[in-house]
Design a protein around this nucleic acid. Structure first.
Lengths: 147, 147
DNA sequence: ACTCTACCGAGACTCATTCCCGATTAGCAA
DNA sequence: TTGCTAATCGGGAATGAGTCTCGGTAGAGT
């Protein structure tokens, strides 16, 4: 699978920029996230691969986030969730957040909306002397499972 | 000020729906939030009025949130922040979240964008069998203070 | 093989948030 | 006003996600 090896290569190269290695534990994290259909919390990650140590998972996800390989999502429950960075999975997307069970699901918005939004947000940021990094557009409600 | 008494009346009535009282401590919380220029964390709330007990503040904010009087915001730092519900302050708005200091600032988006967005999100929710409650549109970056 | 430095992981620790429970107070009615 | 009752209060203990420590391990050279 060239998709996966590209992913690994890109991750390794982003880590190298920070003098960080792409170790087995980090490969495992990236692998689990790549095969997940939705953002995962750390307990979920640990459950999917028993070889992962909790403290290392926290440390490594922080490193991977700094390197821009993964992205942290703060939902409505008490834990944060992780997914691969958008530019590694090739599509910009947003999140459906279930306020009952905390699960997070991806969705994409029409390109037109997305463009208008970007332009508007850029203007807003400028007006407030704010240096915008990215935007978060989430839909909060009840997922099909919890209804 | 009739605005404030309206606010209190509305808060009382929303609490009554849940068989909850609008007590002094709850009035204080609402008052502090009403006079704040930005969403406040619980430490910030406690600092603004020493008469507030920590455990009661947590409990009461949870009750006020259930009653739809206040709204909880999860930012980028380790605590959540609270502000009055939008329909009590009469304008729909979004947040600028500083990833350095955690401060949160309000902003409003152009009505056109907001409408398009709503329509698009409604469609997305329907497609996913998701029962949408509200959307969150936040801009994450560095505030003027931290630059 | 040697060395240097990043990395590992088990467990202790931190601290925002929640829970407990006896004391207090709001609301209501006699 | 005087009870009465259930909601509320608040100080402190408990919980638990996330962080830190530190002795041991393992990559990438040389």
């Amino acid at each position: 699978m060239s998709g996966v090896s590209d992913l690994n290569e890109e991750a390794a190269s982003r880590l190298r920029l920070l003098d960080q290695r792409y170790t087995r534990a980090r490969r495992t994290l990236v692998g689990v996230l790549a095969s997940a259909e939705a953002p995962l919390s750390i307990p979920q990650l640990l459950a999917r691969d028993r070889a992962l140590a909790q403290s290392s998972a926290y440390r490594n996800l922080a490193v991977l986030e700094q390197a821009g390989v993964v992205h942290r999502i703060v939902g409505s429950d008490e834990f944060s969730r992780y997914e691969l960075a958008e530019d590694l999975t090739r599509h910009h997307h947003h999140h459906l957040i279930c306020s009952q069970c905390g699960e997070v699901q991806d969705f994409t918005a029409p390109a037109g909306i997305e463009n208008d939004l970007d332009r508007a947000l850029q203007r807003v940021a400028a007006q407030h002397g704010f240096d915008a990094d990215h935007h978060r557009l989430d839909l909060v409600g009840t997922c099909a499972n919890c209804r």
